[in-house]
Design a protein around this nucleic acid. Sequence first.
DNA 1: AAAAGGTCCAACCGCCTACAA
DNA 2: ATTGTAGGCGGTTGGACCTTT
Length: 318
Amino acid sequence: MGRRPCCAKEGLNRGAWTAQEDNTLREYIRIHGEGKWRNLPKKAGLKRCGKSCRLRWLNYLRPDIKRGNISQDEEELIIRLHKLLGNRWSLIAGRLPGRTDNEIKNYWNTNLGKKHQTQQARTVPDSNLCSKPVPNNIKVSSNTGACSSPSPLKIMNSHHDHVIRTKAFRCSKVPLTPVVPQAQPNTHQHLDKINIMGQYQYSLNNKPAETGALDEFFPSSYREEDQDHNQSSDFPMNFKMGDIGLSDLLNSDFSDVCDFIFSDDNSNDLSPASSDQPLWVSEEMLQDWTVNNGVQTNIVAPNIQCFSPLLNSGGELL
DNA sequence: AAAAGGTCCAACCGCCTACAA
DNA sequence: ATTGTAGGCGGTTGGACCTTT
């Protein structure tokens, strides 16, 4: 069965938006709010596809859009986030207030991408990267750019810099199941076990009730909600990935996060030390990361190494 | 001055996931 | 469990603008 087009193409305006159309859309959203994009054009009297309206609003008309040049700080953050996340522009944009994924993507493609490509060509020997040529019969995903060979390929090729590539996925709500032991009433702010997507359990045992890993890893809104719900063993909670301050994580030394993710007392964990785990991050990558960020290798390298599976795991973990 | 080539960026496209029926 | 729809994402395109020759 063919996919139904999001809207009939006939008789719709395409291309650049006029000021009149902008005003109409802005006014409609001011009154009715965002959402219901498919019906919006008809109701608002716009001869546009719903998707087009959404895009115009998100990338241009939203009041909180920051326009103007990308600052040096923003650029550095983009580079660091891209190193960690790859071309996941919406996630990157989520850490840059007022910037859109489209804007960052364009900025990367026109400025940073080239800059980095030449930088990588000078500094990174191919042998440390995904050096296998991709055979013609193996599809290279247009969405992710990742080699989709049968093996769990974790190290990206030079074309995409040092990217921890994950399968493209979207994660707006994650059901988390904290199990707080009754015998430890003081640990209510810390999840003894977190069942993520019902697949993995990570233990945060041996963490006293102090401000620690989770306090950094989870937003305060999450923790407050936790207190409200921790009597239940399987409450679903809304957890916006955008609420995780990746830039905060990047600025941290990851040690607490790693303790959280890879406790040594849980047989279900994903310890990167396990010999049958794929190599998540090349030494070269770790070296490059620490060099570029001016931090101590001996602190960050092992920690980011154990953090990378969180990102690598993509939807399975998150 | 004008043609050619390059750059930038808004908009489009197709695919994916979440979710409701 | 299945199917259809809505919304979201990243890759790509096209045209306006700029620079070079």
